[in-house]
């Protein structure tokens, strides 16, 4: 597995982390642990989306460069 492929695995895991973080934050918010958690949850879901967009950009960039193994 090349660094390019491993980086894509990494991006996938980071996306899952952000989704999990979003879920954890919203659970905390609904358990009345503070309003900040709602913002953290929203930020986490936005972060997950951002990472997916980055992953797609990285995939296109490395394809253009011919780094596919």
């Amino acid at each position: 597995m090349s660094l390019r492929q491993f980086h894509l695995v990494f991006v996938t895991v980071v996306t899952c982390l952000f989704l999990g973080m979003g879920g954890w934050s919203l659970k905390g918010y609904f358990d009345h642990q503070g309003g900040l958690l709602l913002w953290l949850g929203a930020g986490s879901f936005a972060g997950a989306l951002l990472v997916v967009v980055y992953g797609a950009w990285f995939l296109r960039k490395t394809r253009r460069m011919g780094l596919i193994e």
Binding site: L3, F6, H7, V9, F10, L17, G20, W24
Partner: peptide, 12 residues
């Protein structure tokens, strides 16, 4: 990347 991946599991 591997070391970073370990942290991604350690943090939660």
């Amino acid at each position: 990347h591997f070391v970073d991946l370990v942290w991604i599991f350690l943090f939660p």
